[in-house]
Amino acid sequence: MTTNNVWFVTGASKGLGLTLVRQLLAAGYAVAATSRRLADLQQAVSADTARFLPLQMDLGSAESVREAIEATISTLGGLNVVVNNAGYGLVGGLEELTDQDARQNFDVNVFGLLHVLRAATPHLRQQRAGQVFNISSIGGFTGNFPGFGIYCGTKFAVAGITESYAAEMKDFNVHATVVYPGYFRTEFLSAGSLGTPQNPIAAYQSIRDSQVAHEQQINGNQPGDPVKAAQVLMQISEAESPPVHLFLGEDAYQLAAQKIAAVQQDLRQWQAVASATSFPVEA
């Protein structure tokens, strides 16, 4: 640990967020951790130290988020690293999921993240230092997952927001990284973290197969170790030139390579036709 000693982590009562908080505390960092239910967080992290600040926070409330950021700075003495980790999965075809299903997923995964950025950025900008990790998903880089269109949409949004945020904050020496984890062995695919359609349509067999695979075969057998993922984030937080894009896990790298190859093939196949769309150059 060197300078980035105060972390703010959302969605910290389970999954990658919980693992990260535990690893940070073990390494000597100061951590403000948030959850919708404070009791869950306090039960999950039994750290009796002044370096740990558990906070109840409602991501849907800009005021609640602002109060959490202010409490972090006043109690722990600053703010160096922000981790937008809170979010949940949603499986279901675009025809199957309701408008409410979609909006709720965007409210948490995207607009909740924006609330945190708006509250934290003035402090980071004024101190001209800081690191922001926005946790997307490999599903935020490739959407080739039947039944995950809305969820992928939220995570693609996180990626786009992070790229622009990184460009906006460059002049203030604040770094932003979009994190694309592959499959890590957390509770993410459990019933409490994965929404499903109330009225599934029988015709979508590929979606049902994908849903069953994620809930029954993949869940509990993910190849990624969340402890190692947390350690990568800690290492990058201390790097002089953190990446804007961070793929986590061998599977994430493989899926990213497949997407890049597919895009390159489409570019080559249609370049002659699609690029011949400019006005003619006048002599």
Rank of each mutant, 00 (worst) to 15 (best):
D40Q: 11
M169V: 05
L233W: 13
I260T: 14
K14W: 09
I138V: 14
S46A: 13
P226N: 09
G89T: 13
Q216R: 15
V110P: 00
D101N: 15
F133N: 07
S13M: 05
E163D: 06
V263M: 08
Q100N: 08
N105Q: 11
S35E: 02
F141C: 03
A50N: 10
Q104F: 05
Q100L: 11
V81F: 03
A274W: 03
L267E: 06
D171K: 14
S206W: 00
G192E: 01
Y180M: 02
S64D: 03
L113C: 00
A26W: 06
I236A: 03
L76C: 07
R118F: 09
A159C: 04
L59C: 08
A191H: 11
P197Q: 12
L94V: 12
P54R: 07
N109M: 03
L38S: 09
F156L: 02
S278R: 13
V212M: 05
Q217F: 11
K228W: 04
P243H: 10
Q254I: 11
G140W: 07
F8M: 01
Y180L: 06
K14I: 10
F172I: 14
Q126W: 05
V21N: 03
P197D: 11
Q42L: 10
E96M: 06
Q131G: 03
A167P: 00
L79M: 06
L189Y: 07
N4T: 09
L94G: 08
I69Q: 02
G17N: 08
V110C: 01
A256V: 10
T3Q: 13
Q126L: 09
R22M: 10
R51S: 15
T277N: 05
R268S: 15
